[in-house]
Every structure is written in C-alpha cells, then in structure tokens.
C-alpha cells in the first residue's frame, strides 16, 4: 500500500512535467554578460578558458561593502583565511596568510 502511494506521488510529480510542451520558450529573465578577461595565467584570457577556478571581486562590489582597506575586503571572501595580529601595538590592524580551500 505504501509502495502504491509512493508510486502515485512520483506520478503526480512527473505528471505536470510531462504535460509541458517541449518547445515552450524560457520565461526567466536573463542578461547576456560580456566575456570577462582575466590575468590569472599571466596573460589576458577568457575566464571560461582558464585551467584554474578564479574568484573575481569587482570594484563595484567592493564599493558596495563600504570598506576602506584590503584586509577588510579579503576577510569577507570564502576560502581565504586572514589572521588579525594586534602584536602589542606594532601593527595596527591585520596581517594575513592564505590557506587553500579543502
């Protein structure tokens, strides 16, 4: 009985999907982004052609955060570990090293 009920649920889920006409246009709004070139390989290249994953933080995104110094911006990035070092008043704010993402 439980199996039948589950089967009915699957069919109910599949039903409306199958009922969709195949040629219906995508109604989700989309924007065509310009190809982003990058210096990750020390030469200007298309981002999609790079052999390594690259995170790009745009100047506009930085401006929106309202931050002033680079340590504050890098602290916000996933996969980067920055370490505050108040070392007895010698260095006022933050030093950092990086750790690769697991």
């Amino acid at each position: 009985m439980r199996f039948l009920a589950l089967g009915g649920l699957v069919l109910a889920l599949l039903g409306p999907l199958n009922a969709q006409p195949q040629s219906r246009p995508d109604t989700l709004p989309s924007i065509d982004l310009p190809d982003i070139v990058i210096t990750g390989t020390r030469t200007v290249r298309d981002r999609m052609a790079l052999p390594v994953p690259v995170t790009v933080v745009s100047g506009q995104a930085i401006q929106r955060t309202g931050l002033s110094r680079l340590n504050e911006v890098l602290q916000e990035q996933t996969g980067l570990l920055t370490v505050p070092d108040f070392g007895g008043g010698k260095v006022y704010n933050c030093k950092a090293w990086m750790r690769p993402t697991p």
């Binding site: 990750g40 994953p53 690259v54 790009v56 933080v57 680079l70 504050e72 070092d85």
Partner: peptide, 20 residues
Amino acid sequence: TLDLSRLTVHNIERIEIIKG
C-alpha cells in the same frame, strides 16, 4: 605575514583570487 591594510580599496578595478 603581510600587512594587508597597507592597501586602500578605493582605486581597485577588480580583485582576482586563485585558490590553490
């Protein structure tokens, strides 16, 4: 360690981060 607060962000066009 490098003191990252030496850099201001007001003239940055973009930051590219390669992990690994």
